[in-house]
Design a binder for these strands. Structure first.
Lengths: 278, 278
DNA sequence: TTGCTCCTCACGTCACGTGAGGTGGC
DNA sequence: TTGCTCCTCACGTCACGTGAGGTGGC
């Protein structure tokens, strides 16, 4: 028989660990002295301890190990627990792989630009929304800005502020196209029957803005004419992390623009639906 | 400005998280109401929050992120932190890979044998030891057992029990060799000047038993004639986990054998120095 | 005024590490 | 008898989740 210290040294664990396993009932000493409380272990308890340590090294929790060590576990249950754990490890392996690539691209960013002063891309998902909007084709950015001002003005006057949530621009044309086909409108807290006639017979009507599972998002605050920098950062990020564009891009204005006529400061979130490239 | 709930929804974090980041000073609300304690955030705080979340996704602790977000970090420090984190992820990636393979081999074990009732291999290291032993060549196992009995008897009579620690057999011949070349002796708590003459002019002398960095170990308790089962388990484990034998095998007796003449029960640890195969 | 949102404690998580303060064993 | 080993609390770790109990805001 060994006292706890010797037993611990043989198995290369701490005494504290052995006391912990004792308290959890995972490995009780073969005998505990009533008076002194000293724990005594026998050498033939090492196989059980080693099984415990082996399962721990596989990443099982002590509670799970408790079940796996007990007499009454069926083979099927054991196999099930191992398979589940296998799936978890495979999952986390894939995630760590992606993390590694992101770290590498950050390091590269620093090498090239001397800092992290760039945009930070996050992945999120969006539920479906009620969307009151009009789809139009524009020849240039000036036209877009004029239309946007009109939408904002009409939205303010015709939608109650608890219904009107966020100004959104959905891009239905690629960036290579000559003409811009955009949808301008408001996300609403709840569907309403309102329609809003803009000039030229263009009408904002309600529709469902689709839910998106995975979208890459960047938030930027600053002058509106530097939006392209954020798009650039998104493009680099997607390439570095093997994502592909999977739907029309959205610009969500987190603050209503044009509030201060003297500045063109905007706070917007640029969202690209994406999928993992094969 | 947003109240905490709206700000949290936009960034897809919990309010609790925002309060936590506030308390840690990582992201303070742009304004906190003195009377009600309500926190108010501005949209242009989102870039900072998103950087925080991006760094968190890379696996940095909040304390590290605190430094990385602060104004006074030099580019070099940032690069250093990223490189360190990269090394950590690479390390854990390799470990998870090994874990995955071990889980797979356990599942296979269950498929083939219907249970885990086998030996559990653990990796450990051994420091150098004082070793009082004699090296001999044997023709068969009966000879070995006779010599071992002699070593045990002499050890008991000539070594004080606080000096004598464990009976060890070191195998200097391969298993394919006809003759067995073994070293039988005791690990000692401290070097002593003792020599012990066994029969036939064979003498136990003190030497240093080398330290081993990585050894694969199995403990078994049971009749001595079933030791080969443990060796089999070790062989399978080494193959499944890409380890190679890197030195002479040791059998460490955790209890002195031959204590009860009516049984041949032994508790021993079988240790193979190993290295990772290329 | 009624919900809704927000507030501040404070416990729980997981597997121990790390003292503090005290006692048994050779 | 003196160290050495062991004992039992009990706090700390890390990033929050999850109530409890109470109050401000539209």
């Amino acid at each position: 028989v060994f006292r706890i210290g010797d037993f611990a040294r043989i198995a290369r664990v701490s005494g504290r660990q052995l006391r912990h396993y004792d308290r959890l009932g995972l490995l009780e000493p073969s005998h505990t002295d009533r008076q002194s409380g000293y724990r005594y272990y026998r050498a033939d308890q090492l196989p059980r301890l080693n099984r415990l340590l082996a399962l721990k090294a596989l990443g099982f929790s002590l509670a799970q190990i408790g079940r796996m060590l007990s007499e009454e576990v069926a083979t099927d249950e054991l196999r099930g627990m191992l398979s589940m754990r296998k799936a978890q490890v495979e999952q986390s392996l894939a995630e760590e792989h992606a993390t590694l690539r992101q770290i590498e691209s950050r390091i590269q960013q620093i090498e090239e630009q001397g800092s992290l002063r760039d945009y930070d891309v996050t992945l999120k998902s969006e539920p479906a929304r009620s969307f009151l909007a009009a789809r139009q084709t524009f020849a240039d950015m000036d036209e877009v800005v004029r239309a946007l001002r009109l939408v904002v003005a009409r939205g303010k006057s015709e939608l109650r502020s608890n219904v009107r949530q966020k100004l959104v621009v959905v891009a239905h044309s690629d960036f290579e196209d000559e003409a811009l086909e955009l949808e301008l409108g408001f996300i609403l807290a709840k569907p309403v029957n309102t329609r809003i006639d803009l000039a030229d017979g263009v009408t904002m009507m309600i529709r469902e803005l689709e839910a998106v599972d995975t979208l890459a998002s960047v938030v930027r605050a600053g002058p509106s004419d530097q939006t392209h920098l954020a798009y650039g950062a998104l493009g680099i990020w997607m390439e570095a992390n093997d994502f592909q564009i999977a739907g029309p891009c959205r610009e969500v204005f987190l603050e209503l623009p044009f509030a201060d006529p003297a500045s063109d400061h905007v706070v917007m979130e640029i969202q690209f639906p994406v999928t993992k490239a094969a």
